[in-house]
Simulated scan of single mutants.
Amino acid sequence: MEELPTIKQMKKSLPNIYDNWLCPVCSDVIEDFNHIWSCVCHVNILQKIVRDSQHFILTAINNNIKSDFCHVFFTDINSLDNFWVWSIDNNRLTFIDFIKNFIPITLSNYLKSLIFNDKVIRTIIGDLHDFTYNEVMNNIWKPRCELQVVLEKNLSITKKKKLDSRLNFSTNSSFNFINNTNFSSVDYIENSLESLRNNIYFGGDILGVYAAR
């Protein structure tokens, strides 16, 4: 999911077109993957997605509890600490990591504490992930893409213009690589032989060694 075509990603292949572009939603900063979640225009939407996800899993859990006298309440779900945090944290798994399909141990342990079997746990987590992913796509990413399409249309940026720019960029990159590489140097030859040797030892497409360089 981190490879979503944000402005930062688009700049890598189309720098001539997107060089000075900012986030198409807020127009404040350069849009990268992290900005999708920190964009001021997305805060209220993310809060709603989190609340709806909490109610979704609450319903799913109670539907799978067999006893009529034992039910889970919203306060129980809300106590899953970091799981409902909608920001990126390098030290802990958050709601954003869950959208990317990382399952925090706190969630699985909580479901295990309710005496659910593995099949039920997988179903609840899978259904919750599908729900949150679709909510993010439909309420954040797709509207964002629609805004970008409008901006590009207003600037007369067509598919043909993008294709031409990408081809020119690829051609120039290849030309610079060839001109800046000494194919007869000892280091280059040794590195090429090492790559070839590794492919022979560990398997792979030998011809692809040079095609990929």
Rank of each mutant, 00 (worst) to 15 (best):
I140C: 03
S79T: 03
P104K: 03
L107W: 00
F169S: 10
E31H: 07
C26F: 01
N134H: 08
I30N: 15
S67Q: 03
M137R: 12
N78I: 05
N20G: 06
E31S: 07
H35F: 09
L111E: 01
N44Q: 13
H35V: 09
L22R: 13
N154I: 10
K66M: 06
F175K: 14
M137D: 09
K100R: 15
I96W: 01
L114H: 11
N168K: 10
F98A: 02
T181D: 05
F175T: 15
E135I: 00
P5D: 05
I7G: 00
I77R: 01
V72S: 09
I99M: 13
P143F: 07
I7T: 06
T171V: 09
D89W: 05
V150Y: 06
F95E: 05
F95I: 03
Y210R: 05
T75S: 12
P15D: 04
D187I: 13
S195Q: 11
G126Y: 06
N179F: 02
C23A: 07
K48I: 09
N63P: 02
N90T: 13
E2N: 14
F116K: 00
H42T: 05
V186S: 08
Y210D: 11
N63D: 15
D32W: 01
P143H: 10
K153D: 14
D164G: 02
V209G: 07
L193R: 10
H71F: 04
F202W: 06
S173A: 10
T6A: 06
C39A: 10
T132F: 05
N101H: 10
E2I: 04
I121G: 02
W86G: 00
D187L: 09
D205E: 11
S27V: 06
T132M: 10
Q9E: 11
N64I: 02
N199I: 06
C26K: 01
S185F: 03
V40H: 10
W21R: 12
I65N: 00
K112N: 11
S113I: 08
I57K: 00
N176T: 11
E2T: 07
L4E: 04
P143R: 14
E31Y: 02
F83W: 00
L22D: 08
S173K: 15
